[in-house]
Design a protein around this nucleic acid. Structure first.
Length: 789
RNA sequence: GCCGAGGUGAUGGAAUUGGUAGACAUACAGGGCUUAAAACCCUGAGGAGGAAUAAACCCCUCCGUGUGGGUUCGAGUCCCACCCUCGGCACCA
């Protein structure tokens, strides 16, 4: 007969109900001592997988820990519920994305409750519900009013399969993030957010954030600041060189090499291309057409640099006054800098490759020679010859009439999507086609339901009769609706404000509460959101700050990227490999507490590592919980020994410190060490056990509460205070000091922790049977190193 | 190519941030309980060698944190060079 243990199937649902009935986790936001703990609200895919558990269960440990420490913790959850998968499922199954989404949310809610999370469901937000997207629309309107949202024609990335425009951020290696189809480029009129206006602040304010360096660095790179100059090259007309020349402006980070600029390159999409008097117009048009058909991948093939000369056109190098040829080539990007570049083939690898292919002159202007790309001494550079390139850089810019310029790699955020399941853009067009914001009293501007979702190259909203009628009824005949919806990243750029006041019908958030609760104290999420979501949320917060709609200009104080759970075979979990872990089965067999404990133990949560799933992990945690349960059968009223009291103090301090840093793996191991020690005792003092149960509470909340009740304590363990580590007990009176000779361990001595050096020296010399040493190093409480000849 | 993070037993990982490397756990091995198995409990364990013994433990020595150098009384930790893995960006002028 197995030893008596606990039955998680009885305990877990019972306590979940008890907590819910007692509204134990509903946060009163008006109370003092706020702590805002946030995790990324999930997309309602319908089923909780192991990764979801990792995201919610482990942050829940921290929420519970913080609460016991006396913080008023806001730990909310919601659903990022708009988006393509629901729409695609609806197309496939012929169902309605709204109903499907609601059903999946309901399913996920009940699964999340089984984890034993202490999230506050009363603050739930669902981005696809009118109550929420009314405010997405309202915020869009505010940004539009302040010129931070605008409509423009621009080259955009187009996914031919999903039949929609994509943001740059949604193009991965030239393919659509969702479906993997190669992305095409198109010129379309679209809605944008002016994130570039905030580029400098997004960059500079990173300095203020205590974020992990890899996250900050990734954002810096994404913003991609380059300092350089804009330089005008004139293109005189052939007939009369001086009359009214056309100007091509280039951006360069190396104006100091301009004496080596032997030709110009324009992007094929550059507006001037068609405006110049080129003699080979047909050829040029042909090339432009061919380029536009290329996918992003084809275009970024490094090997071959294609391009053709604009014949009959010359530009004047403002430094050398020489005529130089002008080319169009697809290695020049329309969307970076001015869409035109001065080519310095001697000192730029790309220009060099192109020049070789097209037999263009290569002039060395740095003494270090052809192929050199660093800083050095200038040559062939008129009066600047002999000067250092870096030092002469801005003098050269001035001498040739250029101006210093900063350029960013980041582009404005394209937010319109030709898809159905998203937040309608709150705009209508008058009979002249001019856009107008929909007045606030008509918000929420509802997503129509009489819509054909199937992609036909037209936005689905165009098929809604109801929408057309609605617009004409409100605005008049000839007025037309906007058919595009907003990218879901807009929805998720402000949801953390909404949690503070999710049901408010008059404001997007409660600004008084925001003053108290923002910024979010700690935000935990996946590393895939490092550059996209996190930048958009920062941009939104800054923009709202400037509009006096946010008390803070940064949304998140701390940020941790969570690691990735891998399958038992070390590969990414995937149906394809058959290595997907189903948490439901594990909960059924071992209990949610055991799963939580294993997830906490699997590796450090403060670093985004890859953790292969150990099939023995959850059972072994269940074993550990059983041992804690078994301990309850040998309780004794006696006082703990001093040794035990020291162990307890150390354990408390260790778990506290590790949990604060999200290092739950070592916190759990400290708990294990404590249990190992308690098991050695013939009887377990009740007070020591009570401490253990409190320490266990954040990790295994159901069992801890059960044991708390079973040991006849009143109320819930989760309303208890976190135990305090007795500082006096943390200092060991006597400690083991390692004795080294020449850095090698030769023994140990038990010494008082503050023994004076003279005394220690005497004892150590005696121990080693020596009389003198070349050097004697003593670190009190730790180590003695004796250096002998 | 550029940037970032990281290489520690069979495995996940630990190491008070320059002070006993391998905590804690898994897997493994031996033993106990059992008719047997499961469960549970106990014990062992980085590698090589030495000494000793009936045998084992204890004990002793050397090697050992990707590789090679360096700084230091002392290096997994700091510095230099190189190799490898993972992640981000990538024709960004």
């Amino acid at each position: 007969m197995a030893k008596e243990t606990f039955n998680h199937k009885d305990i877990e649902p019972a306590f979940q109900k008890k907590w819910e009935d007692a509204k134990l986790y509903e946060t009163d936001l008006t109370k003092p001592n706020p702590y805002y703990l946030l995790f990324e609200f999930p997309y309602p895919s319908g089923d909780l997988h192991a990764g979801h558990w990792y995201a919610y269960a482990v942050t829940d440990i921290f929420a519970r820990f913080k609460r016991m420490q006396g913080n008023n913790v806001l730990f909310p959850v919601g659903f990022d519920a708009f988006g393509l998968p629901a729409e695609n499922a609806a197309i496939k199954e012929g169902t309605n994305p709204k109903e499907g989404t609601r059903a999946r949310i309901e399913r996920m809610r009940s699964q999340m409750k089984r984890i034993g999370t202490s999230v506050d469901w009363s603050k739930e937000v669902i981005s696809s519900e009118p109550m929420y997207y009314k405010w997405t629309q309202w915020l869009f309107a505010k940004l539009y009013e302040h010129n931070l949202a605008y409509r423009a024609e621009a080259p955009v990335k187009w996914c031919p399969k999903d039949q929609t425009v994509l943001a740059n951020e949604q193009v991965i290696d030239g393919t659509c993030e969702r479906c993997g189809t190669e992305v095409e480029e198109k010129i379309l009129t679209q809605w944008f957010m002016k994130i570039t206006e905030y580029a400098e602040r997004l960059l500079a304010d990173l300095e203020l954030l205590p974020w992990p360096p890899e996250i900050k660095e990734a954002q810096r790179q994404w913003i991609g600041k380059s300092e350089g100059a804009r330089i005008a090259f004139s293109i005189p007309r052939t007939a009369d060189r001086d009359a009214n020349p056309k100007i091509i402006e280039v951006f360069t980070t190396r104006p100091d090499t301009i004496f080596g600029a032997t030709y110009l390159v324009l992007a094929p999409e550059h507006p001037l291309v068609m405006a110049l008097d080129v003699s080979n117009k047909n050829e040029v048009e042909d090339y432009v057409k061919k380029t536009s058909k290329k996918t992003a991948i084809e275009r970024s093939e490094h090997k071959e640099k294609t391009g053709i000369e604009l014949k009959g056109v010359k530009a004047v190098n403002p430094a050398t006054k020489e005529d130089i040829p002008v080319y169009i080539a697809d290695y020049a990007l329309a969307t970076y800098g001015t869409g035109a570049l001065m080519a310095v083939p001697a000192h730029d690898a790309r220009d060099h490759a192109f020049a070789k292919k097209h037999n263009l002159p290569i002039r060395v202007v740095l003494e270090e020679g052809e192929g050199y790309e660093g800083e050095g001494t200038l040559s062939n550079s008129d009066i600047f010859t002999g000067k250092n390139s870096k030092q002469a850089r801005w003098d050269i810019v001035e001498a040739i009439g250029g101006k210093r310029a900063t350029n960013y790699r980041m582009r404005d955020w394209l937010v319109s999507r030709q898809r159905y399941w998203g937040c309608p853009i709150p705009v209508v067009y008058d009979p002249e086609g001019k856009p107008h914001l929909i007045p606030e009293e008509h918000l929420p501007w509802l997503l129509p339901e009489d819509v054909d979702y199937t992609p036909k190259g037209k936005p689905p909203l165009a098929s809604s009769k109801e929408l057309h009628e609605r617009v004409e009824k409100i605005f008049g005949e000839g007025w037309m609706p906007e058919y595009d919806t907003l990218d879901t990243f807009v929805d998720s750029s402000w949801y953390f404000f909404r949690y503070l006041d999710p049901k408010d019908d008059h404001n997007f958030t409660d600004l008084e509460l925001a003053k108290k609760w923002m910024p979010v104290d700690r935000y935990s999420g996946g590393s895939e959101h490092t550059t996209v979501h996190l930048l958009f949320a920062r941009f939104f917060t800054k923009a709202l700050y400037d509009l006096a709609l946010s008390p803070v200009f940064e949304p998140f104080t701390e940020r941790f990227n969570r690691g990735l759970l891998m399958g038992p075979d070390g590969r990414k979990m995937s149906k394809r490999w058959g290595n997907v872990i189903n948490p439901d089965e594990l909960v059924e067999q071992y209990g949610a507490d055991a799963v939580r404990m294993y997830l906490a133990f699997i590796g450090p949560y403060n670093e985004p590592g890859h953790y292969p799933w150990q099939p023995t992990g959850v059972p072994s945690m269940r074993k550990f919980l059983n041992r804690i349960f078994t301990l309850s059968q040998k309780l004794d009223e006696g006082e703990p020994s001093e040794d035990m009291r020291r162990t307890l103090a150390k354990t408390i301090a260790k778990i506290e410190k590790d949990s604060e840093k999200f290092k739950f793996n070592t916190a759990v191991s400290a708990l294990m060490v404590l249990v190992n020690e308690l098991e050695k005792l013939p009887k377990v003092p009740t007070s020591a056990y009570g401490t253990l149960v409190r320490l266990l509470a954040p990790f295994a909340p159901h069992l801890a509460d059960h044991l708390f009740e079973a040991t006849r304590e009143q109320g819930s363990v989760h309303s208890q205070k976190w135990p305090e580590a007795d500082a006096a007990l943390l200092v060991e009176e006597s400690v083991v000091v390692v004795i080294q000779v020449n850095g090698k361990k030769r023994g140990e001595l038990v010494l008082s922790h503050d023994a004076p050096e003279d005394e220690v020296k005497k004892v150590v010399f005696e121990f080693l049977a020596i009389r003198e040493a070349k050097r004697f190093v003593y670190v009190p409480g730790k180590i003695v190193n004796v250096v002998v000849g």
